[in-house]
Amino acid sequence: MSDLQAFIGDWHALIILVLAGFLPNEVWRMLGLWLGGGIDEEADILVWVRAVATAILAGVIAQILVHPPGALATVPSPLRYGSVLFGVLVFLGFKRSIFAGVACGELMMVGGKYWMG
């Protein structure tokens, strides 16, 4: 296999990327562009859409924690949940600093995993 072939890979996989990755994701942006123009920013329906979007994002976050992909699966679940909880507590305690929360959550996970060997 030439370098170029290795770089591009299998055509099937690229078609799957477009069908299962690009289109189902991009459709929401384009719907927002085509339908959103007429929606008043203060409209009540937008409060519902925003709440559902926030809750879905929360579900996506929970999914990565509950069914972790790749290397994250090697971290025991109490440590995964504990690290995120610690990050949230630091975030709430330190003037809502995203950086402080992310850094402390990560430190707890890495430290905990290292300590357990």
Binding site: I16, L19, G21, L23, N25, V27, W28, G32, G36, P69
Partner: peptide, 30 residues
Amino acid sequence: LLAALGSGATVIQAALAVGVSGIRLFPMVV
């Protein structure tokens, strides 16, 4: 998408999971 395809999900299952996660983009664009 990577986790779904890596764990042997069908294209439709993967598309559904991605599509659901993308709904949040709609109100962001709006």
